[in-house]
């Protein structure tokens, strides 16, 4: 289990292919992160909407659909 590269600069350079490898890694990780952040935010937004509706209709009927 040894690292193939001797220095940090070698890791960045990847034997001349550094740009390709690190662009691929950066974009992929960013897209994967978005797949967690986007549903998390829409989940929070949906819960907040329910909360607002509850506060507005406190005690009243809240039977109308939400969309």
């Amino acid at each position: 289990m040894n690292i193939q590269f001797a220095s940090f600069n070698e890791i960045l350079a990847m034997g001349g292919h550094g740009l390709y490898v690190w662009v691929a890694v950066t974009v992929s990780v960013a897209v994967l992160a978005a797949l967690l952040v986007v549903p998390w935010q829409s989940h929070t937004r949906a819960l907040n909407q329910v909360r607002l509706r509850l506060e507005r209709h406190a005690g009243g009927s809240a039977e109308e659909g939400v969309d």
């Binding site: 549903p39 998390w40 829409s42 819960l47 039977e63 659909g65 939400v66 969309d67």
Partner: peptide
Amino acid sequence: CLFTRAEIIRREAT
């Protein structure tokens, strides 16, 4: 799971 949970809250809001 994350996407579906958000969808559940939207659909089941009432």
